[in-house]
């Protein structure tokens, strides 16, 4: 195949760096199709990305699964649905068929999203390569024997050889991508009315997830559940393993892809934009509350780091972390409840 680049109407849309990969893919693909208003906080908010969950029985990298964001794939699905954009998805059994289809799409000038595993992604530093299979990249074209790739968390465009791309598209294990490829079809212009509706829908959905799910493991209540667990970790597992579990929380909360403060700052930015688009100033105080929540989470990360590094390892230190966790949970629960009652 010779040199091919998807002909974007405006070249700068080939790559947009964002905090989170899924938001980035939504942003770039929709902008490519002329929906210029979309940006990361909007994609995240409309896709109802904010979340909290603690699954003690599920282990990720030998520590309990904790997430500050909704399940992989949901942001893309919900954001496109709310904006009336249809998405075509395709999985493959054979790598050859997967490559043929990809080539065909970029030949047609259509940039496509690909689900990939991180473990074999060559441009990532080794320290960040875990078996996480729900990373998203956009393939833009083919040049000098390599695919042009826009990875939303990278500052610049990058590239992968056909073999490398096949490797990451067919990573195995939990959430195996199976070469999944996806792209929007039939895009119509989104009217202002529709955008407003989509924003309201996103807010409504987030408040539902955070306050209405009848489980102590999901939503704002789950912060309190985590707090209860943290209090027991030192006695149950000892300082080292307890510290490792805390390290898991810190990483899920602050690592690259979160925008800082467990996605709370992105959500606060979304509410700020929502206030402007909806012409509703009542949303501004809510945005400030989530900024506060993010700041509290970061302050708690500093506390946890002291335990992780072995500077402070008393039960009292674990209790302080737990205390802060409950406090954040209470703040988020009340804020989401009020937000749910707010007439938008």
């Amino acid at each position: 195949m010779e040199k091919i680049l998807t002909n974007t109407p405006n070249n700068k849309y080939q790559h947009i760096q964002t905090a989170h990969c899924e938001n980035g893919v939504v942003t770039v693909l929709l902008r490519h199709h002329g929906l210029d208003f979309i940006n990361e906080p909007l994609a995240f908010g409309i896709g109802a990305g904010i979340f909290y969950v603690h699954l003690p029985f599920l282990k990720v990298n030998n520590a309990p699964a904790i997430a500050f964001r909704i399940m992989p794939g949901f942001i893309f699905r919900d954001a496109c649905k709310a904006l009336g954009v249809k998405v075509k998805r395709k999985k493959f059994r054979s790598p050859e068929a997967a490559r043929l289809f990809l080539d065909q799409k970029i030949n047609e000038g259509q940039p496509v999203g690909c689900q990939v595993g991180v473990f074999n992604l060559p441009y990532f530093p080794r320290e960040y390569r875990f078996h996480f299979n729900a990373h998203n990249i956009i393939v833009h074209g083919f040049e000098n024997g390599r695919y042009i790739v826009s990875d939303p968390i990278m500052e610049d465009l990058t590239s992968l050889s056909p073999e490398e791309l096949e490797d990451v598209r067919f990573a195995r294990g939990p959430l195996a991508p199976k070469g999944q490829i996806y792209f929007p079809i039939n895009i119509k212009q989104v009217s202002e009315e529709q955008l407003k509706k989509a924003i309201k829908k996103g807010i409504r959905k987030s408040t539902w997830w955070m306050t209405q799910v009848p489980s102590q493991l999901i939503g704002a209540r789950a912060f309190n559940y985590t707090a209860k667990k943290i209090r027991k970790w030192r006695d149950k597992f000892g300082e080292r393993k307890g510290g490792l579990y805390l390290a898991q929380i810190v990483r899920m909360q602050e690592e690259i892809g979160t925008g800082g403060g467990g996605f709370r700052f992105i959500f606060a930015a979304f509410l700020e934009q929502a206030a402007e688009i909806l012409g509703n100033d009542k949303l501004i105080p809510f945005s400030e509350e989530f900024t506060k929540s993010g700041d509290l989470l970061r302050a708690n990360a500093v506390r946890m780091a002291a335990i992780i590094k072995g500077r402070k390892t008393q039960q009292q230190n674990f209790n302080e972390v737990a205390e802060a966790m409950s406090e954040i949970g209470e703040l988020e629960f009340q804020t989401f409840k009020k937000l749910r009652k707010l007439s938008l």
């Binding site: 320290e127 390290a247 810190v250 780091a305």
Partner: peptide
Amino acid sequence: VKADALDEA
């Protein structure tokens, strides 16, 4: 802070 957490992992 997060570098410490990653380091520990």
